[in-house]
Design a protein around this nucleic acid. Structure first.
Length: 701
DNA sequence: AGCTTTCAACTTTTT
DNA sequence: GTTGAAAGCT
């Protein structure tokens, strides 16, 4: 075969080439960890374009905005300007597009609002007449599961088998009514309603089918039942000409079962599409064989869907180390010592500097980061905790989003309530209650009720004036948002708005801590700055905006914000150690990885209470997912891996014996080489270093 | 009884 | 560092 560097398949291994060149018909790529799956997807996009498919008929679907942004970036590098026409977005963003355009067929006006999970929680508390957060969360979880199983409230009620389920289904009915009244949808609806749309409207089905010449799905193992059904319709299940898609995934990295993802989708694919081409990517470009062997050994203990054996051309590498610490603090100390010792070692041997950013410490649950943070601070090691509160979860950003939602969709009552109360403008709970009951009596949204002639019968004249003023201001804002185009004008619009409502003052007044208030306002400025950039046609790497590089109005841009949870951040290149949960680490890699808390009960996670309440079968399924989590953790490492457990764990005031994780045994490490105390190692290195320094510079002092 | 204080526990998380 | 629950206080 001739080598052509300009060919899209240049530098791909045979399996990758197969996947890229299989252009017609359904294709499933089982891509092991680090086997170059993003490469396959982007190259395949390039190949499709090269063979004449218009970019606007190609869609690549991901799970997170971040993944979409990365993929768009890499596609751009390959195909240049053609990348503009591509649809590269999340499942949810695609759903939004479908609903904005064709949503009327399922009873949605184009300006519908998207509720985040806090809004949903609030609505559920109302629907269930409860202030109990915990109960509301349980409802939320149950309702989401029903929705993802394709059930509406009525169907959920019909299949409910106990009082508890019946109560939840009743709350779901009220919740559905509220959503309809507010012209709002939740995240599950962004998949469920497009599905319903395609199922019920032949016209919509034909429209969206005709637009998609090839669909590529990333992280296919994370799809849930609804997403699969939607995908089937989009690619034309049952149509002899249909099935133009490529799914890329890894059954061994399926770690979101608790969120509705189901491996059934992987099983079903060959059945539903008998001419499916199955391609396995088994060459790993990330890790050494010592690491991969451990990974393969662990995952072997799971029942397997497809057999897969990762291998690497990167050599044997350093043995995987085990750290048996006494307790959590001790474990953290040793992690710190290992980081320092690996850096010192590189320095000693005049190797390239090992940067802070080359390290990652992985753990099962967020709270485990705390001890590590303390240890890092004590040792002056810079770090970041990945995950945590996202930008859009911050109260100040949600305040502003509520305003934006309200000007886009006046019927969005939850947004109305938040906007009218932030900042405080003399409209209190009693006025709002009166307005609320008036609105529901008149079958109006809260905003519509503001201008009803008979409102004066419900509220005092002073309250009425305040409400009218608010309403007029929102209308004025809406008008301006519609007619403000481009980055510069948009920024002015936002700053005027913040000044109008006195938002900075509000932040300082509602927060005792001056510094925190200032930090919050910085966030606000960052947010409006980013929004303004998008109005100028820049700054959208997520594929949410249909057309890039074109001036947009504030109103248009605002319509897409609720979908984004990550601002395109420049944080990626900070030179710091990463502390991350195993879940948040998927898809990422580091030269040196330390996996801590590998104890029975922590990883695999289990609760003592579950031992009795959960069936053997259920427990086996859970452990299998925990094992995949371990597998994900191991395969994040490029060059070295340390696996750590503690001998004791805290229980109340005292310590009890802790068992090392069964996964450590399953790794089948060579016991002779695995253990080392990083602190001893570090001490030895420092001594050696000092000696050497003394020898080379005998005169220096 | 209703309030405050203390104590321990803490899945995983995106849209 | 936060939250929920249990114990203690008025």
């Amino acid at each position: 075969m001739s080598f052509d560097p300009s060919s899209p398949t240049a530098g791909l291994n045979p399996a990758q080439q197969d996947a890229v060149n299989h252009l017609r018909g359904p294709c499933l790529v089982l891509a092991g960890a680090g086997s170059g799956k993003t490469r396959v997807i982007t190259q395949k996009i390039a190949r499709l374009i090269q063979t004449g498919m218009p970019p606007d008929r190609i869609a690549a679907i991901t799970f997170t905005n971040k993944a979409a942004a990365e993929m768009r970036e890499r596609a751009k590098q390959l195909v240049g300007r053609s990348a503009k026409g591509l649809t590269i977005c999340t499942f949810h963003a695609l759903g939004v597009r479908m609903l904005r355009e064709s949503g009327e067929a399922v009873g949605l006006k184009p300006q519908f609002s998207i509720l985040d999970s806090d809004d949903v929680l609030g609505l559920l508390k109302e629907a269930g007449a409860s202030t109990d957060n915990k109960a509301a969360r349980i409802w939320q979880w149950a309702i989401s599961n029903w929705k993802n199983a394709g059930l509406n409230a009525e169907q959920a009620l019909a299949q409910a088998s106990n009082d508890n389920e019946r109560i939840t289904a009743t709350i779901m009915q009220r919740y559905e009514l509220a959503l309809a009244a507010y012209q709002a949808v939740d995240f599950d609806d962004l998949i469920g309603l497009p599905l319903k749309l395609l199922q019920t409207s032949l016209e919509a089905l034909q429209l969206w089918r005709s637009r998609l010449g090839h669909v590529l799905v990333d992280e296919y193992q994370d799809t849930n039942a609804t997403q699969y059904e939607l995908l089937k319709l989009l690619v034309g299940y049952g149509d002899p000409k249909g099935g133009q898609f490529t799914c890329v995934g890894d059954d061994d990295q399926s770690i979101y079962g608790w969120r509705g993802a189901t491996l059934d989708n992987l099983k079903k694919l060959p059945q539903d599409f008998p001419n499916l081409r199955l391609i396995k990517l088994e060459q790993n470009y990330r890790s050494t064989n010592a690491i991969l062997r451990a990974a393969n050994n662990v995952i072997r203990a799971n029942p397997k869907l497809f057999d897969k054996q990762l291998w690497s051309a990167l050599g044997e590498g350093e043995p995987v180390r085990i750290n048996d610490a006494d307790h959590e603090e001790h474990e953290a100390e040793r992690v710190v010592a290992r980081i320092q010792s690996l850096r010192a070692q590189a320095e000693m041997h005049a190797q390239p500097l090992v940067d802070w950013k080359h390290f990652c410490v992985l753990y099962r649950a967020n709270h485990q980061a705390r001890v590590l943070e303390q240890a890092c601070r004590k040792a002056s090691i810079p770090y970041k905790v990945s995950g945590g509160q996202s930008f859009f979860d911050r109260a100040e950003i949600k305040d502003l989003c509520a305003w934006l939602r309200l000007i886009i969709n006046n019927d969005d009552d939850p947004a109305f309530l938040r906007a009218v109360a932030t900042p405080k403008r003399g409209i209190g709970t009693s006025t709002l209650q009166a307005l609320g009951s008036f609105a529901s009596k008149m079958k109006l949204s809260l905003f519509e009720a503001l201008f009803a002639d008979s409102l004066h019968t419900a509220v005092s004249s002073r309250a009425l004036a305040g409400l009218h003023e608010f309403g007029r201001y929102v209308n004025d804002l809406e008008y301006r948002a519609r007619h403000t185009l481009g980055a510069e004008d948009a920024l002015k619009f936002f700053l005027d708005w913040l000044k109008d409502i006195g938002y900075e003052k509000h932040l300082h007044e509602s927060e005792d801590n001056e510094k925190l208030a200032a930090a919050r306002y910085t966030n606000v400025l960052e947010f409006v700055d980013w929004m303004a950039k998008r109005c100028g046609g820049k700054g959208d790497e997520s594929g949410i905006d249909v057309i890039a590089d074109v001036k947009k109005s504030v109103l248009e841009v605002a319509q897409t914000v609720s979908l984004l949870s990550t601002i395109s951040e420049r944080e990626g290149e900070q030179n710091v150690v990463t502390l991350s949960t195993l879940h948040a680490a998927k898809g990422l890699e580091w030269p040196h990885v330390m996996l801590i808390g590998c104890n029975e009960g922590t990883l695999p996670f289990s609760r003592d209470a579950d031992e009795e309440t959960t069936s053997l079968e259920e427990r086996a399924i859970r452990v299998a997912e925990e094992r995949r989590l371990m597998y994900v953790g191991i395969t994040r490492a490029q060059r070295t891996l340390m696996v750590s457990h503690t001998k004791k764990r805290k229980k109340g005031r005292d310590f009890v014996i802790a068992k090392p994780s069964r996964f450590i045994t399953e790794m089948q490490l060579d016991q002779a080489t695995v253990k080392e105390d990083p602190r001893e190692k570090l001490k030895a290195l420092r001594a050696e270093f000092a000696k050497k320094a003394a020898e080379t510079k005998p005169d220096a002092r």
